[in-house]
Amino acid sequence: MVDFLFYIFATLTLGSAAMVVLSRNPVNAAMFLIVSMVGVASLFVLLSAFFLAVLQVLVYAGAVVVLFLFVVMLLDEEDKRRVSPGKLNSVASVVALVLLLLGAFSIVISPDLVVPGMAEPRTLGTTEAVGANPSEYGYHLFTTYMLPFQVAGFLLLVAMIGVILVSRKYRDDSEVPARS
C-alpha cells in the first residue's frame, strides 16, 4: 500500500514539476507549482515527517505561491514580446539535463554508496521515526541548533527590511529613490 502511494505521489510531484517548466502561462506554472509542493508534502507524510508536511503546505502552497501569483498579476506582462529560447540554449539545456540525470543516477544505483552511519540498508520499519514528533523539533531548535535558529530570525528581519527598501517608490526613470 505504501509502495503504491509512493509511486502515486512521486509521479504527481515530478509530473507537475515538468508542467511548471513546460507550461506557457506563468499562472498555470504557479498552479502546477502548488500541486508539486503538495506532492512533496505527501512524500514527507510517507517519511512520517508530519510537522514538515504541514509546514510545507503552509509556507509554500500558502505563502510562496500566493506571492508568485500576486506578482504575476501585478506585472501583467501578457507576453507582449514573447521570447522563445534560442536554439543553442535549448540544446545546451537538454545536454545539461541529461548529464545531470546521468550523474545523479550513477550515484543512486551504484552498489557501494554508503550513507554515513548506515552500515546495512535500513527499511522504514527498523528505524524510529523521530521526525514524527513535533516536540523533537522544538528540543533540537533550542539546544543543538540554537545559533542557526537565531541567525534565521535575523535573516527574516533583514529580508523584511530589504524588501521594504527595494520596493520603495522610485521617481520616473531616475536612479535615486525618491526622498520621502
Partner: peptide
C-alpha cells in the same frame, strides 16, 4: 528528510526547517 528518516536522526529534519 529521507536521509533523516532512514537514519533515525533528527538533524536532516531540522535542516529542512531552516531551508523552508
Amino acid at each position: 528528510v529521507a536521509f533523516s528518516r532512514y537514519n533515525g536522526t533528527m538533524d536532516g529534519n531540522v535542516f529542512v526547517f531552516f531551508i523552508i
